[in-house]
Amino acid sequence: MNERDSFLRRLRSGLRGLPRSTVDDIIADYEGHFDAGRTAGRSEADVATALGDPARVARELRAEAGLRRWEDERSLAAALGVIVGVIGLATLDLFVVLPVLVGVASSLLAFLLVGIVTALGGGLILPFALITNLPGFTGDRLQAGLLSLGVLSGGAALTAACILFTIGLVNLLVRYGRAHYRLIAAGTGAPVRD
């Protein structure tokens, strides 16, 4: 198998999971690169070496695609795409960032759960407060109702705050990823031609 096919095959396999049209588009870019290299009189092996490691190029392209999707749609799947993509870049200082990230994410999850449970609890006792009264509660029905509403909205507020914080965190990750993947593949041992 020649260098060109092997590069393109490894690139394609590294891009698995991206939309078909995107992959074809990317592959066409690199095919054109090989064609132009041949026209310029370079060997396929030469062009492939200068392009760098296809797996690494694929990681950068995937990370970029993940970041893009997050910017287009604020969905949980897109956020996960960013996280997986940035981790896929596997830069050295990620090992410093990762423990912090895991810590922040777990506390965030804990707060989120507390928020949801509180909101559910408030919502659950609200009908009882309005119809009868809360067991063991000494105030009148209005007080009980307001108390349940308070618990409900407090929980909702905490949940919302957690979600906002998560969005901010993912945005931060996007900036971190962007700062890292550009030109990461530089100096992969490509010989300097003159």
Binding site: I26, H33, V47, Y181, L183, T188, A190
Partner: peptide, 22 residues
């Protein structure tokens, strides 16, 4: 076009040519 940009930049600042497309 891509090849031209990549080869001119890689000659000038010694970067991996593959990174131009991302």
């Amino acid at each position: 076009y891509g090849y031209d940009i990549a080869s001119r930049l890689s000659a000038a600042i010694d970067m991996g040519e593959g990174t131009i497309y991302p």
